[in-house]
Amino acid sequence: MALLNNFILAKFLGLCPFFGVSKKLSNALSMGVAVTLVMFIATVATWFINHYILIPFDVQYMSIVIYILVIASLVQIVEMAIKRTNLTLYNALGIYLPLITTNCAVLGITLINATEAYSLLESVVCSLGGGIGFTLVLIIMSGIRERLELADSPVSMKGLPVALLTAMLLGLTFFGFGGMI
């Protein structure tokens, strides 16, 4: 999950933070950790909601509305909890936490778990693998982009286009893991 079905490069989930936050290495690490944390908590929470509320009452068509509300409130709770317990971590993650609500990777993982009907353990493994893969690619990408800033690329390629081409090369590289695993 972390390497082969990478969330960013193979499933296109969480592209906005991928291109938005991958300009500096330290920010990329904070963002990756925050996303992985929220993905893990959201997976556990939505699994219980799905199996003890939505399925028994047969209201699975409400899942999209419920999930997004759960994720939004979870992000808020996590933000408050981190603020109270660990101020340095809060300052590091600070502005990235609210952004996670609209990160497709988080809603994506909960929907994947629901449609594939994973058990609790499978869901948790899936979310952790996805989160670690997300962090990994974000860190690699930001390392490359820090150098790209200094490189002398054509005017019309500067910024986003060249970042997209880098993502293509990364994606091809990650396909190579297909033969190994």
Partner: peptide, 10 residues
């Protein structure tokens, strides 16, 4: 394949 999407978009 996914990498092609990045290539084309770029």
């Amino acid at each position: 394949l996914p990498p092609g999407a990045f290539l084309l978009m770029g």
